[in-house]
Amino acid sequence: MKARPIVWLTWGALIFFMLNLVGIVGAVVTNSFAESWFGTWLPNGYTGKWYGEAWRDYRLLDVLAVTFQVAIAVVVISVLIGVPTAYALARRNFPGKKLLNVLFLLPILMPPMTYGIPLATVLYKFHLAGSMAGVIAANLVPAVPFVVLTMTPFIEQIDTKIESAARMCGANTVAIFTRVLAPLLVPGILAASILVLVRTVGMFELTFLTAGPTSQTLVVSLYEAMSSAGIRPQQMVDSMAVIYTGSMLLLLVIALRFVNPTQLVTRLKDPA
Protein backbone atom coordinates (compact mmCIF):
# COMPACT_ATOMS: atom_id res chain seq x y z
CA MET A 1 0.00 0.00 0.00
CA LYS A 2 1.32 3.44 -0.91
CA ALA A 3 1.67 5.64 2.13
CA ARG A 4 -0.05 8.95 1.58
CA PRO A 5 1.30 12.36 2.65
CA ILE A 6 -1.22 12.63 5.46
CA VAL A 7 0.16 9.48 7.02
CA TRP A 8 3.70 10.85 6.90
CA LEU A 9 2.49 14.13 8.27
CA THR A 10 0.73 12.43 11.15
CA TRP A 11 3.72 10.36 12.11
CA GLY A 12 6.07 13.28 11.60
CA ALA A 13 4.05 15.57 13.85
CA LEU A 14 3.75 12.81 16.41
CA ILE A 15 7.49 12.24 16.45
CA PHE A 16 8.16 15.99 16.73
CA PHE A 17 5.72 16.20 19.64
CA MET A 18 7.35 13.22 21.31
CA LEU A 19 10.86 14.64 20.86
CA ASN A 20 9.82 17.88 22.49
CA LEU A 21 8.15 15.98 25.27
CA VAL A 22 11.28 13.97 25.88
CA GLY A 23 13.26 17.20 25.91
CA ILE A 24 10.90 18.78 28.41
CA VAL A 25 10.91 15.86 30.78
CA GLY A 26 14.60 15.23 30.18
CA ALA A 27 15.51 18.81 31.06
CA VAL A 28 13.77 18.51 34.42
CA VAL A 29 15.19 15.10 35.23
CA THR A 30 18.70 16.18 34.19
CA ASN A 31 18.48 19.32 36.27
CA SER A 32 17.29 17.39 39.30
CA PHE A 33 20.59 15.50 39.22
CA ALA A 34 22.79 18.49 38.31
CA GLU A 35 25.48 19.93 40.55
CA SER A 36 24.89 23.17 38.74
CA TRP A 37 23.72 23.93 35.21
CA PHE A 38 23.99 27.37 33.63
CA GLY A 39 23.96 28.05 29.92
CA THR A 40 25.65 24.86 28.78
CA TRP A 41 24.44 21.77 26.92
CA LEU A 42 24.81 19.60 29.96
CA PRO A 43 25.42 20.24 33.65
CA ASN A 44 28.98 20.22 34.92
CA GLY A 45 28.52 17.42 37.40
CA TYR A 46 25.88 15.05 38.75
CA THR A 47 24.62 14.39 42.24
CA GLY A 48 21.63 12.82 43.92
CA LYS A 49 21.76 15.08 46.96
CA TRP A 50 18.87 17.31 45.86
CA TYR A 51 16.40 14.52 46.39
CA GLY A 52 17.49 14.11 49.97
CA GLU A 53 17.37 17.82 50.58
CA ALA A 54 14.00 18.25 48.95
CA TRP A 55 12.68 15.32 50.95
CA ARG A 56 13.82 16.95 54.18
CA ASP A 57 13.25 20.62 53.44
CA TYR A 58 9.82 20.26 51.95
CA ARG A 59 8.92 17.60 54.52
CA LEU A 60 7.76 15.35 51.75
CA LEU A 61 6.98 12.46 54.07
CA ASP A 62 4.29 14.54 55.75
CA VAL A 63 3.04 15.83 52.42
CA LEU A 64 2.87 12.33 50.97
CA ALA A 65 1.03 11.13 54.06
CA VAL A 66 -1.52 13.92 53.68
CA THR A 67 -1.85 13.24 49.95
CA PHE A 68 -2.40 9.58 50.63
CA GLN A 69 -4.97 10.18 53.37
CA VAL A 70 -6.89 12.70 51.30
CA ALA A 71 -6.89 10.48 48.21
CA ILE A 72 -8.00 7.38 50.09
CA ALA A 73 -10.74 9.25 51.94
CA VAL A 74 -12.00 10.75 48.69
CA VAL A 75 -12.00 7.35 46.98
CA VAL A 76 -13.85 5.60 49.80
CA ILE A 77 -16.45 8.30 50.33
CA SER A 78 -17.08 8.89 46.64
CA VAL A 79 -17.58 5.17 46.05
CA LEU A 80 -19.92 4.87 49.04
CA ILE A 81 -22.00 7.81 47.83
CA GLY A 82 -21.60 7.35 44.09
CA VAL A 83 -22.40 3.67 43.64
CA PRO A 84 -25.86 3.75 45.28
CA THR A 85 -26.64 6.93 43.36
CA ALA A 86 -25.54 5.38 40.10
CA TYR A 87 -27.69 2.35 40.90
CA ALA A 88 -30.83 4.37 41.50
CA LEU A 89 -30.20 6.51 38.41
CA ALA A 90 -29.58 3.45 36.26
CA ARG A 91 -32.58 1.47 37.46
CA ARG A 92 -35.42 3.92 37.98
CA ASN A 93 -37.24 6.48 35.92
CA PHE A 94 -38.67 9.01 38.31
CA PRO A 95 -39.84 12.58 37.99
CA GLY A 96 -36.89 14.93 38.32
CA LYS A 97 -34.33 12.41 37.11
CA LYS A 98 -33.18 14.69 34.28
CA LEU A 99 -32.45 17.49 36.72
CA LEU A 100 -30.46 15.19 38.97
CA ASN A 101 -28.52 13.90 35.98
CA VAL A 102 -27.57 17.44 35.03
CA LEU A 103 -26.58 18.22 38.61
CA PHE A 104 -24.27 15.24 38.59
CA LEU A 105 -22.78 16.28 35.27
CA LEU A 106 -22.13 19.94 36.02
CA PRO A 107 -19.24 19.48 38.49
CA ILE A 108 -17.38 17.64 35.74
CA LEU A 109 -18.23 20.21 33.09
CA MET A 110 -17.42 23.27 35.20
CA PRO A 111 -13.91 24.64 35.63
CA PRO A 112 -12.95 23.86 39.25
CA MET A 113 -12.29 27.56 39.88
CA THR A 114 -15.91 28.47 39.25
CA TYR A 115 -17.29 26.39 42.10
CA GLY A 116 -14.01 26.19 43.99
CA ILE A 117 -13.99 29.86 44.98
CA PRO A 118 -17.55 29.93 46.31
CA LEU A 119 -16.94 26.55 47.95
CA ALA A 120 -13.81 27.87 49.63
CA THR A 121 -15.82 30.87 50.81
CA VAL A 122 -18.46 28.59 52.31
CA LEU A 123 -15.80 26.42 53.91
CA TYR A 124 -14.21 29.53 55.44
CA LYS A 125 -17.62 30.46 56.78
CA PHE A 126 -17.93 27.09 58.50
CA HIS A 127 -14.26 27.13 59.60
CA LEU A 128 -13.50 24.07 57.52
CA ALA A 129 -11.08 25.73 55.14
CA GLY A 130 -7.48 24.80 55.74
CA SER A 131 -8.37 21.53 57.39
CA MET A 132 -8.05 18.10 55.91
CA ALA A 133 -11.84 17.72 56.04
CA GLY A 134 -12.21 20.80 53.87
CA VAL A 135 -9.75 19.47 51.30
CA ILE A 136 -11.54 16.13 51.21
CA ALA A 137 -14.93 17.80 50.85
CA ALA A 138 -13.71 19.97 47.99
CA ASN A 139 -12.15 17.04 46.16
CA LEU A 140 -15.36 15.05 46.51
CA VAL A 141 -17.24 17.54 44.34
CA PRO A 142 -15.87 16.24 41.03
CA ALA A 143 -15.10 12.74 42.38
CA VAL A 144 -18.65 11.65 43.23
CA PRO A 145 -20.08 12.59 39.81
CA PHE A 146 -17.14 10.84 38.22
CA VAL A 147 -17.93 7.63 40.11
CA VAL A 148 -21.59 7.95 39.12
CA LEU A 149 -20.67 8.32 35.45
CA THR A 150 -18.18 5.48 35.53
CA MET A 151 -20.47 3.07 37.37
CA THR A 152 -23.71 3.64 35.46
CA PRO A 153 -22.79 1.52 32.41
CA PHE A 154 -21.48 -1.23 34.67
CA ILE A 155 -24.77 -1.32 36.55
CA GLU A 156 -26.87 -1.15 33.42
CA GLN A 157 -25.30 -4.29 32.07
CA ILE A 158 -26.40 -6.38 35.05
CA ASP A 159 -29.70 -8.08 34.25
CA THR A 160 -32.46 -6.97 36.63
CA LYS A 161 -33.72 -10.58 36.60
CA ILE A 162 -30.68 -11.50 38.67
CA GLU A 163 -31.84 -9.15 41.39
CA SER A 164 -35.38 -10.49 41.10
CA ALA A 165 -34.00 -14.02 41.46
CA ALA A 166 -32.12 -13.01 44.61
CA ARG A 167 -35.30 -11.47 45.99
CA MET A 168 -37.21 -14.65 45.28
CA CYS A 169 -34.54 -16.51 47.23
CA GLY A 170 -35.36 -14.30 50.21
CA ALA A 171 -32.58 -11.74 49.96
CA ASN A 172 -33.42 -8.29 51.30
CA THR A 173 -32.05 -5.07 49.80
CA VAL A 174 -28.89 -5.10 51.89
CA ALA A 175 -28.16 -8.71 51.00
CA ILE A 176 -28.76 -8.00 47.32
CA PHE A 177 -26.22 -5.21 47.46
CA THR A 178 -23.58 -7.07 49.42
CA ARG A 179 -23.98 -10.59 48.09
CA VAL A 180 -25.06 -10.13 44.48
CA LEU A 181 -24.40 -6.64 43.16
CA ALA A 182 -21.13 -5.85 44.92
CA PRO A 183 -19.26 -8.94 43.66
CA LEU A 184 -20.56 -8.33 40.14
CA LEU A 185 -19.58 -4.67 40.32
CA VAL A 186 -16.06 -5.23 41.67
CA PRO A 187 -14.35 -4.55 38.32
CA GLY A 188 -16.31 -1.34 37.89
CA ILE A 189 -15.70 -0.17 41.45
CA LEU A 190 -12.01 -0.94 41.09
CA ALA A 191 -11.80 1.04 37.87
CA ALA A 192 -13.69 3.97 39.33
CA SER A 193 -11.57 3.96 42.50
CA ILE A 194 -8.28 4.00 40.67
CA LEU A 195 -9.43 6.73 38.32
CA VAL A 196 -10.63 8.87 41.23
CA LEU A 197 -7.33 8.23 42.99
CA VAL A 198 -5.32 9.42 40.00
CA ARG A 199 -7.51 12.45 39.52
CA THR A 200 -7.46 13.42 43.18
CA VAL A 201 -3.69 13.19 43.47
CA GLY A 202 -3.42 15.37 40.39
CA MET A 203 -6.19 17.83 41.30
CA PHE A 204 -4.56 21.21 41.82
CA GLU A 205 -7.17 23.97 41.89
CA LEU A 206 -9.59 22.65 44.51
CA THR A 207 -6.86 21.59 46.92
CA PHE A 208 -5.01 24.84 46.38
CA LEU A 209 -8.12 26.87 47.20
CA THR A 210 -9.02 24.97 50.35
CA ALA A 211 -5.78 23.64 51.82
CA GLY A 212 -3.98 25.12 54.78
CA PRO A 213 -0.29 24.62 55.68
CA THR A 214 -0.94 21.19 57.19
CA SER A 215 -3.37 19.90 54.61
CA GLN A 216 -1.41 20.43 51.41
CA THR A 217 -1.17 17.60 48.95
CA LEU A 218 1.89 16.97 46.83
CA VAL A 219 0.71 19.01 43.81
CA VAL A 220 0.04 22.04 45.93
CA SER A 221 3.31 21.97 47.86
CA LEU A 222 5.06 21.51 44.56
CA TYR A 223 3.38 24.64 43.23
CA GLU A 224 4.22 26.55 46.38
CA ALA A 225 7.81 25.39 46.19
CA MET A 226 8.06 26.60 42.64
CA SER A 227 6.46 29.97 43.27
CA SER A 228 8.77 30.58 46.22
CA ALA A 229 11.81 29.45 44.25
CA GLY A 230 14.83 31.62 44.63
CA ILE A 231 15.10 30.80 48.29
CA ARG A 232 16.16 27.28 47.48
CA PRO A 233 18.03 25.92 44.46
CA GLN A 234 15.98 25.13 41.36
CA GLN A 235 17.23 21.55 41.45
CA MET A 236 15.26 20.87 44.63
CA VAL A 237 12.01 21.90 43.01
CA ASP A 238 12.86 19.75 40.02
CA SER A 239 13.63 16.70 42.11
CA MET A 240 10.33 17.17 43.90
CA ALA A 241 8.58 17.39 40.54
CA VAL A 242 10.27 14.17 39.50
CA ILE A 243 9.06 12.53 42.71
CA TYR A 244 5.53 13.71 41.95
CA THR A 245 5.65 12.46 38.37
CA GLY A 246 7.19 9.20 39.51
CA SER A 247 4.36 8.53 41.92
CA MET A 248 1.74 9.50 39.33
CA LEU A 249 3.43 7.22 36.83
CA LEU A 250 3.30 4.40 39.34
CA LEU A 251 -0.41 5.01 39.89
CA LEU A 252 -0.97 5.14 36.15
CA VAL A 253 0.83 1.87 35.57
CA ILE A 254 -1.28 0.27 38.27
CA ALA A 255 -4.42 1.84 36.79
CA LEU A 256 -3.66 0.58 33.31
CA ARG A 257 -3.48 -2.95 34.64
CA PHE A 258 -7.11 -2.71 35.67
CA VAL A 259 -8.71 -0.33 33.24
CA ASN A 260 -8.76 0.40 29.57
CA PRO A 261 -6.77 3.58 28.87
CA THR A 262 -9.81 5.30 27.41
CA GLN A 263 -11.52 4.95 30.77
CA LEU A 264 -8.92 7.25 32.30
CA VAL A 265 -10.74 10.14 30.78
CA THR A 266 -14.36 9.39 31.41
CA ARG A 267 -17.12 7.04 30.45
CA LEU A 268 -19.39 9.84 29.38
CA LYS A 269 -21.96 8.32 27.10
CA ASP A 270 -24.30 11.10 26.26
CA PRO A 271 -24.26 14.25 28.30
CA ALA A 272 -27.29 16.54 28.25
Binding site: S164, A165, C169, P183
Partner: peptide, 20 residues
Protein backbone atom coordinates in the same frame (compact mmCIF):
# COMPACT_ATOMS: atom_id res chain seq x y z
CA UNK B 1 -45.56 -8.28 51.14
CA UNK B 2 -42.25 -7.83 49.30
CA UNK B 3 -41.11 -10.90 47.32
CA UNK B 4 -38.52 -11.96 49.88
CA UNK B 5 -41.21 -12.17 52.58
CA UNK B 6 -43.61 -14.26 50.47
CA UNK B 7 -41.20 -17.17 50.32
CA UNK B 8 -42.17 -18.38 46.86
CA UNK B 9 -39.66 -19.94 44.49
CA UNK B 10 -39.23 -18.78 40.93
CA UNK B 11 -37.59 -20.07 37.77
CA UNK B 12 -36.88 -17.35 35.21
CA UNK B 13 -37.01 -17.64 31.45
CA UNK B 14 -33.30 -16.76 31.05
CA UNK B 15 -32.51 -18.60 34.31
CA UNK B 16 -31.01 -15.50 36.02
CA UNK B 17 -28.28 -17.53 37.72
CA UNK B 18 -25.77 -15.59 39.78
CA UNK B 19 -22.77 -15.55 37.41
CA UNK B 20 -20.22 -15.12 40.19
Amino acid sequence: LPPEKRGFGMVFQNYALFPH
